[in-house]
């Protein structure tokens, strides 16, 4: 490599960092350091595939939704999630172009365990209470973590997130409406919600990821903060979640299954029982309660539809 090129490479890096520092948006065709591109690919492809895998636990309750009104609501919600997946994978595909990879490769990466889907979607759903709780608290958590990236330095991602966040607000309201109907209903309906909260509590703490890489060995939060892809740390996000939702959970008479949970005025933060991060690590290895089952569902649909993909390809060529 010539000296001239080396210099310009360095200049490009400096220019890039200056743009990031000035709060400018980076676009798909702009020069970007590989570290930045790879961090974005990892983040956005995981986000996109999680939206798609996230449709599966909720899908379990779509046919079973109790009333026509609820059937329409949950259908609309899950359809939105698929739409988010599509939007995000398009963003990821653009970033993947220099590597000659596309969406099909991402699917293979998912099946072979190289691409992870969000830890919360590896969990089992057991009742209609879970369908409500997912909409209310899981989507509520998603709003917090996605709002954290609304100002992302990568323009296409920031714009996709704007649309996604607007829809997620509707989802959280949909979930909250299901929960409110249940907690104001019969003792059995109320018990459904408490039981759902008990089972999902640990997953809600896992949702934002470990506080630092000391907990689980890896964390990509440092690099995403450095490049202004996100603002807050995992723990800050978890604290926001607790501040927003603990009062709401308590106000409808539910009990958080953690007797140690309290707000410490001196430290100005919530103190909670740490979840078992060993379980989190297992989920990350696709060894969660429903990891393999959900992957199998996705994989079998991919294999069953191979002839359709071939047919569509033949039409294009």
């Amino acid at each position: 490599m010539s000296v001239v090129t080396q210099l310009s490479e360095q200049e490009l890096q400096e220019q890039f960092e200056a743009r990031i520092a000035a709060g400018e948006k980076i676009e798909v065709d702009d020069w970007m350091p590989e570290e930045y591109r790879l961090a974005l690919i990892k983040l956005i492809s995981m986000h996109g595939i999680s939206e798609i895998m996230g449709a599966l636990p909720e899908k379990e309750w779509v046919p079973k939704a109790p009333t026509l009104y609820r059937k329409l609501g949950i259908m609309a919600k899950v359809q939105d999630e698929m739409g988010h997946g599509q939007l995000l994978l398009r963003v990821a595909e653009d970033l993947l172009k220099p590597y000659g990879k596309n969406r099909g490769d991402l699917m293979i990466d998912l099946f072979e365990g190289r691409l992870k889907f969000h830890n919360v979607f590896h969990m089992e759903t057991k009742s209609w209470g879970d369908a409500g709780l997912i909409g209310w608290l899981v989507d509520g958590s998603a709003i917090i973590s996605q709002t954290n990236m609304l100002g992302s330095s990568y323009g296409p991602y920031a714009r996709a997130l704007q649309r996604i966040c607007a829809e997620e607000v509707f989802h959280a309201q949909h979930g909250e409406a299901i929960i409110m109907a249940l907690v104001e209903g019969t003792p059995e309906q109320r018990a459904l919600v408490q039981d759902a909260l008990n089972r999902w509590w640990e997953s809600l703490l896992f949702f934002f990821g470990p506080a630092s890489k000391d907990t689980t060995g890896t964390s990509k939060q440092d690099i995403t903060i450095k490049y202004k892809i996100r603002v807050q740390t995992n723990e800050e996000l978890r604290q926001s979640f607790l501040s927003k939702y603990i009062p709401r959970i308590q106000s409808i008479g539910l009990t958080v299954p953690d007797p140690t949970l309290h707000f410490d005025e001196a430290q100005n933060k919530w103190i909670y029982q740490e979840p078992n991060w060993e379980i989190f690590k297992k989920i990350q290895r696709n060894e969660g309660p429903c990891s393999q089952e959900r992957l199998a569902l996705r994989r079998s649909s991919y294999e069953n539809n191979a002839w359709v993909r071939e047919a569509l390809t033949a039409l294009v060529n």
């Binding site: 798609i52 449709a55 996705r298």
Partner: peptide, 21 residues
């Protein structure tokens, strides 16, 4: 609605679930 999440591609999943809805 039983097909949800299993369509041949993501765009179709969005379209099919819209029709179902």
């Amino acid at each position: 609605s039983e097909w949800l999440g299993l369509a041949p591609h993501i765009e179709e999943d969005v379209a099919f679930s819209s029709i179902t809805q």
